[in-house]
Every structure is written in C-alpha cells, then in structure tokens.
Design a protein around this nucleic acid. Structure first.
Lengths: 229, 229
DNA sequence: TGAATAATTTTGACTATCCAAAATTAAATC
DNA sequence: GATTTAATTTTGGATAGTCAAAATTATTCA
C-alpha cells in the first residue's frame, strides 16, 4: 500500500510541527496539527489513530502525536520531493521563489521516483531548496543543523541568511525586496523589546527595521570570516 | 467546483473513445468506457449518470454516453496538459518517449495553468506530442486532421509517419528501433491478407515486415513531394 | 479545590468512489 | 417469434476522508 496524498500530508505536517520542539518532548498537539492541515480537530484525531494503527506514528491521547521511524522516513521523502520540485521550478522553469510553494504542494504527491531522480541529477544534487531548507537524501536522511534567527543571533556581527521559515508569498516578496534571501550577508544592529523591533544593516549598508515576529522567521548562521577575504 | 481527477479521467476516456467513431453516432458504450478506465461496469454507469447531472455529458441509457460541449472542452484541456507534459518530459527532462505516458497520466491532474503555460512557452507552443497526437490549444480547440494508416495508405508511395496510436512501451520501443517514429518517411511496398502482413521500406531502404494489426496503429500522411527537393 | 475554560475525543452523518452480484433490457440466434 | 446470450443497470455494501456538535478530559485560576 503506498500512502495516499492525505497520509503524506499528515506525516509532513507532523514532521514540520515537530521541528519547533525539543528532541525529547516532541509531541505535536492535535489542535496544531488540525489547523496546519486545515481540517476539524475531530478529523485529525480520527486520522491520527488510523496512522498509529499502521505504525507510522505514535499517538498519546490528549497529549499529541509523534512520528515513528517509518513515518519519519516517509515524511522526509515527501519533503525531499517538495523541495526538489520547488528548486526545479525556480531554477529550470523560471518561476518566482514566492510562487512555487503551492505548485510543489500538489506535485509532491504525484511525481515518480524516476522523475525525482532526474530532477535531482539535473540540479546537481542540491543541498538546500530556494528557502534555504535542507533537502533530505533519497534514503530519508536529513542534514539537520539548527541556526540562530535574527532574534537570537549576536548583535553587531556579520551573519548569513540560511533559511526563511515562512512560506507566505507576501512575506517572501518582502524578504526578496529587502535583500534578505538565503545567502545574503547581514548584521543585526539593535533590538528593542519595547518597540518590538529589530534593526538590520543589509547589503551595501542598507538599513531596515522589522518586527520581532518577522525577525524570528529569518534563520542565519555566523558568516565565516576566513571565507570572505 | 473544479473537477476531480476521477471526473477528468472519465471525460478523457469518453473523448478518446469517441475518437474511433463517426461524427453523428458517436456514443461510447458503457462496457468500453468501464474497461478503458479499469472499473466495474456498474461503477461507470453510476458515474456517468452523475456527470450527466452536472451537464458534462449526454447519457442515453443502454446506448452509451457522449460529451457535451462543456465536457468536450474540459477533456481537451486535460489532453492538452497530458500531451504538453509528455513532450516536456521527453524534450527537457530527457526521458524516453516510451516511459512518459504513465508519468503524464498522474501529473495531468495536478499541474497549475500557470505551469502549463510556462511549459507550452518553453517548448515553443508545439502542435503535436511525442506520439504525433495533436496538442489542444488553451481555449480547448483541437486541430483534428485524420490520416491514413499503414494499412490503408497507397502502396509504393512515400508517406510520413504522423502518429503512433498505441501507447504500450514494448510497442513504442519496437517502433523506435525500426525507425518508424513520427516524422520518419517510409513506403508501403506490399500487403498480404493471407499472411496478415505489411512490408515496409524505411529509412535508407531498410526493409521490415509487420503484422496488419501493428500496421493499423501507425498513422501516416502523404509526404509532400515539393518539400523534399 | 472547585468552577470556568480550553483542548480533545466521540458520535452521527455525509460525499465520492468503488465492487460484486442480482435484475433488467437489448441483441442475436434458431 | 421464442429463447439464449450479452450488455447494462440496480441494489446493497465497502472505504477514505470529511464536518458539526455533543461529550469528555485537562488545565487554569481564583
């Protein structure tokens, strides 16, 4: 039995939901799962119980759900397809990075392994997708390295944007217009709790101030000084 | 309500089923439809009645079903997606023309108009797919021109292969190996009812003898003498 | 700790799609 | 024209996925 689109979507949502959490207590609550999938809470409960039956998740009533080893591998493969398709649409088809998410959301369930392999090959076995998210390998292995966000990284130090963890088109366009895409080198000049804002110095010392909520959606890593002459 | 994959498949099957028939009495019988879709006869009946409810087909109990104007347009658009995807997979992704059918069968239901437009553009608004079948326009209009087959075309006259009307991979590989793909120029030297065979002279006077059943699956048009010096 | 609130699960019901087998209708044959 | 055969439709039932609303459990807060 190969999993239906619905099952793949549930696994993916649980996988991404777990992302926020610590390694030990990584139970995704039903409410969060239901709203991530846009279904009623009861629907999520029913479905998750079925997933638990088939061994793809572990379900703790009233507590939440977490992926089993099998479920995690499947979720990673869905994400692999999603991210390879996104990158393909941007690099080969010339679509904008803010408009490929929905398309990939559909295609990820219907592309054969054969075609995905072809895409992977054509793109040169890439490590990350257009949002900077890592692309799982064909065996389901993911290079998980966690970074600071603009909210937590050191002040006054050059950092490189690695991921943008919000896939909404308007946000992505904002990011693009202000040169905050993955790969850009920037610096956090100041943060202010009171005004809920973060001031950035971007490319060619361009200044922008953004809200803390937005800042938390931009992941960065320390720019390696040695690699920049 | 946009149509489900199932509805699209029914419409496409009826469209293709009508292809064999004359313009007036073009009713596809239920049995044929059911077996084309791989469902039980009763299932096809039920579904067709529902399609008739929504105005996509005209249903005559015990006689068969034909597409309405709306249904025909929808079917043409599904076919457009299918054929553009096939051509894309061959030309851009480098897949074999005998392995793209199944992939396209899946993707045709899940690709956005936006992406199809991109593909169409990238391929230079092509007229035909890798099997020589015409690609409907975005408005649903199809250039329908019927040709002879190797079974009916004049003997001893140069003809050009235009379509191969059997999508089975083994057959397509056979066609490819013997240089009988769309575009190739060939000549029927002889036909023999008794031995059920057709003798062909192909590229660089290569000879092959094929069965009449196979010959009927290769459509051709008269090679235009003026265009070949 | 006990009531108010929030999250979760259960229940009953619905839609789309499918099948198997019985019943019916049409077609073919004698 | 009556009967056999073939095609089609009906019937009863199954599965996957969904919702709304009632019932339950957990949590919060006074």
């Amino acid at each position: 039995m190969l999993p239906s689109s619905t099952v793949e979507n549930y696994l993916k949502a649980i996988y991404l939901g777990e992302g926020h959490l610590a390694d030990d207590q990584r139970l995704v609550p039903m409410g969060q799962l239901a709203s991530a999938l846009g279904v009623a809470p009861g629907t999520a409960t029913t479905m998750v119980k079925a997933l638990a039956e088939s061994g793809l998740v572990e379900y703790e009533p009233y507590n939440g759900v977490r992926l089993s080893a099998a479920g995690e591998k499947l979720a990673a493969l869905v994400l692999r397809r999603h991210r390879l398709i996104e990158l393909f649409l941007v690099r080969v088809m010339g679509l904008g990075w803010d408009e490929v998410h929905d398309e990939a959301e559909q295609l990820e369930h219907h592309v054969s392994d054969r075609l995905i392999e072809r895409i992977d090959e054509m793109l040169g076995r890439p490590e990350v997708d257009p949002h900077g998210d890592p692309i799982p390998k064909a065996d389901g292995h993911v290079a998980r390295h966690e970074f600071d966000t603009l909210l937590t990284c050191p002040l006054g130090e050059r950092v490189t944007v690695t991921r943008v963890t919000d896939q909404e088109a308007p946000f992505l366009r904002f990011i693009e217009q202000h040169n905050l895409m993955p790969g850009e080198s920037i610096e956090v000049e100041a943060r202010d709790e009171v005004s809920d804002s973060v001031r950035l110095k971007g490319r060619s010392d361009q200044r922008i101030t953004i809200g803390m909520r937005a800042a938390s959606k931009v992941r960065v890593s320390a720019s390696d000084a040695s690699s920049r002459g």
